[in-house]
Each structure stands twice: as C-alpha cells, then as structure tokens.
Write a protein that binds this DNA or RNA. Structure first.
Lengths: 337, 337
DNA sequence: CTGTTAGCGCATTCAC
DNA sequence: GTGAATGCGCTAACAG
C-alpha cells in the first residue's frame, strides 16, 4: 500500500525543509543550483506530482469545469462535449461530466456534486423539463459562473451559446420552396423546449415571408420518443391533402418519421421529401437521407461555450460587469448529395 | 464577488465553534437539538455545501473516477462512458473525462492531470498506438488503481473488462456458413490492436472448426480510416474469385466498405453479404444494414468496469491481493432481420 | 453539550 | 540560501 509522494517526503529524503523543496520545484530565486537539481531528481524519481486538491485550498482554483448534459448517447451532445474537452484541455482545464437524463432532479444532484467539488465553472445543456433555475442561481453564492449552450433557459439572465434556429428554419424552407414545395409540414418537438418555440416562430415567419399558405394542421408535435413521432407522422399522412415535404425537429425524429413513412409505402424524397435539424454524421452513409439538414455545429458550440466560460474566469473580479454574454451561431443548411 | 460559504462562517454567525457546526451538520451525538436545528437552518440559507477538496486532505478520497477514451465521437465510447457515469453517480462518484484522440502523448498528459487531481481510480480504453504502459504503471505509486476496458493492454498484468471476440467471430461465421457462405472475407483492423489479433484468431479457428477453406487473400486490413477501408474493399473486389460475404472489423468499417461496394454497383446483402462488429444504434433505421452484427455491449462494459474499480477501492488495504481481475463478457450476434 | 487543537499538502511571508 | 510558521476548510481526538 503506497501513498502519493509529497514535498514533505522529498524534504525528508534530502534533509531539507519543505519550503526549500517547494521553491526548488518552482525555480524560485535564491535556491542553490545544486539543491534545485537534487530536489528535481528525487521528485522525478518518486514520480511526484503536485496535489491539485491541496493547491485549491490556497488558490481557490480547481482547474476543473463541470459539464451537464441530458445524455451522451445522443450524437449531438457527445460531439459537443468532445469540443468542450478539447478546448478545455488545451487550456489546462479538466472536465467533470454528468448526465441529467432529462430529469430535473438528477440535474440538481449533479449541480450539487459539482459545487462540492468546487469546479471553477459549469457548462450546461438543460434537461427537457427544467423550468426552475434556482439550482443554477445558487451557484452565484459560490462564485461559479454558468454558461448554457444549445438547450438554454428561456429568459434573458443567462450566458448562452446557441444556434439561430429561425435562420436555419428559413434556409430549410427556402430550399424546399425553391424545389417547388408549398405543402410543407413540420414535426416539432415538445412544447416545453425553447427550441420548439423558436423553430415554430421560424417556420411561421419563413412561410409568411415566402408567401406560402400556413396551414395549422401541418404542424404536429412529438415528445421525441419513436412512438410519438410515428403518431405525429400518421396524423400528417391521414390529412385529406397531405404534405409534400416534412421538416423534422431533429435527426432522430426524422429517422423515426422516415421509417414510419417507408412502412406506409411512401417513397422517401419522392412522394414526400424530408429535411431535418442537427445533421447526424451517419447521414452520409444512408441510401436515402433527408434532402438536407440544418447543421448546428455541436462541436463548435461546445468550444465556444468553453471559450466563454474561460473568458469569464479570467476576467479580474473588479472588472466584472452584470452583462450576460450571448453567442449566436449561424446554422448552415447541409444538402445531402 | 461572493466566496463559497464555509463552516467557519456559519460558526461566526451563530457564535459557535466550527467543530460544533461540523458535528451538527453530521448529526453527531451530543449536540443539542436546538443547536443542530439552527446550524442546519443557517447552512441551508447560505446554500452551504461541504468542500470536497478540503475533505480529500483528510480522507484521501476525492470520490472522483478518471475516464480516458480515444474519442467520444465514436458511439461505442460514448455509450461506454454513459454506462460508467450512470453507475458511478449511483455510488456517489464523479467522473473526470479525457480524450486521448488515439495519441499516446495526450494519453500520458491526461494521466498526469488525473494524478494531479488525485482521482480515486482510472478507467481506460487505450490509444491505438500505446505500447508502453509506464504512465499507467506509475499510478501504483499513487495507489490509484486502473481498470482497462475494451481496448486493453496485451499483457496479463492488468485489470480488464472485455468482450470475448473469438466467440463473437465464431457466431458470426456460423451464421454465414448456415446461410451457405463459404467464401468469407474479413476486413480486419490495424495490426497494433489486440482486438485485431483476437478477431483474426477467432476467424481462423472458426473457419477451421466449420471445415471452411481458409484463404489468406481473404483477410485484408484497414487502419480504420475511410480511405484505407475502401482500398481494402477494393482489394477484395478485384480478386479473381471474390468473397460472397464480408466481415467488417467494426461498424464504421462496415459503413465505408458497404458504401464503396454500392458505388461499384454491388447489391448489399444480395451480391455480397455483410456482417459487422459493435452494432451501431442507427442500423435499425437503415434500409440495408449488415445482415447481422456482433453486439459488444459498450454500456454494460462501462458499467462492469466501474463496478470492478469500486470493488477494488472498497477492498480493505490489508486484504489486497496481487491478483488481476478479469471480466470477459459474451458478445451476442444481433440479426438485423 | 461545546470549545480547542492538530493535521491533511502546499505556497508564502517572515526570520535568520 | 534556507528554515519556521501560517492558513486554506474540514474532521476527529482531546479537553473541559
């Protein structure tokens, strides 16, 4: 049973005081070259690494960022955290990760654990049902900044990184209209999500600005489960005058909707065209992907969010303002084939 | 600029000593009910959470597990870490995450950072080129146990969780032979990986035991890049007597190989049948997935690895043995109708 | 029932 | 050039 080496141990081995060892390791002035060398040798020999945990007591910095996501199994989020981790590690930060599984209670627990660990800052994509943000607000008492990305609270008081969904929707609809579609349906997501409302607003305004008739029955909802998506698709297919194109809330909804349509003997992108949000990497391998999808750059969003929080952390306290930071990325319509 | 509340602050506010506060928060014996209540009230009011970092100094436990993976963008690994995080958080452990991007140098850096943070244990799937394990061995000095999963070192001295690849290969080949295939090719992975050698051993022994002729030219390699996979597939397609079935090292290789074949006007699973390893969740949505794939249960592997490391952490020091723990899971052939 | 103190690992201020 | 002492937040052993 070993114990991690400490400066104390090094000091004892060399008959030095711990402060000398500490200074030697930091190349401080006023330590003889010989001592410095010997200290470093022994340190290396023992595989000494400074104890970040002890350092925190002095510095108040853990060099750790907390990341809270709904779930990693969704490609969007695993790409995002990949961007976060890459950017963070470039700047010597570590990443503590937690999945809320779209459950507000778990989200609260994770926030608490991260408070316990005194992470320097937290990046979050909130759970589907989170309406109350008091667990995040409580972080102010700990001087832990929070940056929300993608799934952000529907209120102004928050640092956020998002994609301009209205713009993405406009691009998608312009694309379809150019191809001659006028009966454009929309399978939207759960009404609690801000993203749902934004996409709907984009849908309405895009259709209006392009002078396409807005039919209320063309907008249906899914809670993102395969079953709900199939029901939504079914609703669309049983309309007397059905849609010629369907926009899906995201790629998973598109997958389920397209599968259901295929089962109903509808030819994808011939009888009904599809356009989707988020752009799964696997589309390129599919024989019949949606005609296009709105790329939301999860990796980039993660990166930018990390950049934002590091900027906040590096702002000297006396310069802190009350302004909230907002980054809004432009999505891009990615046309398949 | 707030600072995190401490027991000291609570003590000052109530004119108590810090030890009384500490005891009250822990419901220790011998504290008057009134005091306990008042302490808890104030603690709640301030949003007090104990400082895990300070606790570590005493207990030597950070309640944090380090996880090192090649990259999260691969579904296999994001599923695995999902299993790790779920199991860990159930047991009040947090997860510190790092991506090696299949680069041994980055892997070393991550190990060092995790040593700095004094994680209680580390779970790893090693980088493709890692041959030297001294950075992991050095963790012994810190009494930090390591459990390898999926991508494990090719030596005995390691705690490992893996899938029995030979068995998976046998199942896959049995499946193909039953369907009448005798010309079964294999696109294997990079030779450095243990998984590559295991699959090859399984391939050879399965063919032999089923009395199918082994043709050396039927085994080709890919470094897992799309280009290499296409070249490998091309090699197979230009054989005078080509294969009737192809087994792919993993799903990504299968995707690339199938796409290439399609481009060459080969009808998937008619002209050439495919079987793959790993079982991407999206197969179920594809019109022409491989006939079958060998499911390796990444989520389960992550869970079991976490279970193993927690078991090691909870073993009293005096009971520690030198034995290495090994868990070998049975893969399952998943047939895509 | 409650207060005082030591110590975990380290950087740092003050002595010599 | 180097050592001794302090304090970061907290628990636990020891005193009352």
């Amino acid at each position: 049973m070993k114990k991690a080496p400490t400066i104390k141990e090094i000091a004892r081995m060399l008959n030095l005081s711990i402060s000398t060892v500490s200074r030697a390791l930091h190349n401080s002035e006023g330590i003889s070259e010989g001592t410095t060398r010997r200290v470093k040798e022994v340190a290396h020999e023992l595989g000494y690494e400074p104890n970040q945990t002890a350092l925190f007591l002095k510095s108040g910095k853990t060099l750790t960022l907390g990341v809270i996501l709904p779930h990693l199994s969704e490609a969007f989020f695993s790409e995002a955290i990949s961007g976060i981790e890459d950017f963070a590690s470039e700047h010597n930060y570590n990443v503590l990760m937690g999945q809320s599984h779209d459950d507000t209670e778990r989200e609260k627990k994770i926030v608490e654990a991260m408070k316990n660990h005194r992470v320097d800052g937290i990046l979050v994509s909130i759970a589907k049902n989170t309406k109350d943000f008091s667990h995040f607000d409580a972080l102010q008492k700990y001087d832990i900044p929070v940056v929300f990305f993608d799934r952000v609270p529907d209120r102004y008081e928050a640092n956020t990184v998002t994609c301009k969904m209205e713009a993405g929707m406009l691009e998608a609809i312009e694309f379809l209209v150019k191809r001659g579609h006028t009966r454009i349906a929309f399978i939207n997501g759960p009404k609690e999500l801000l993203a749902t409302r934004e996409r709907l607003a984009g849908y309405d305004s895009a259709l209006r600005s392009l002078h396409v008739e807005v039919k209320p029955e063309f907008v249906v909802h899914s809670d993102l489960s395969p079953e709900a998506t199939c029901r939504a698709m079914q609703t669309l297919l049983t309309l007397k005058t059905g849609p010629s194109a369907v926009i899906a809330f995201n790629d998973y909804v598109a997958l389920d909707a397209m599968q259901y349509a295929r089962k109903m003997n509808i030819r994808i992108n011939q009888d009904i065209s599809f356009v989707s949000f988020a752009n799964l990497p696997v589309w390129s391998y599919m024989e019949n992907p949606p005609l296009a999808s709105v790329e939301q750059f999860p990796y980039r969003q993660g990166q930018r969010a990390t950049e934002m929080i590091l900027e906040i952390l590096n702002t000297p306290k006396h310069k802190v303002t009350d302004k909230f930071k907002k980054i809004i990325l432009e999505p891009r319509l990615f046309i398949h084939t």
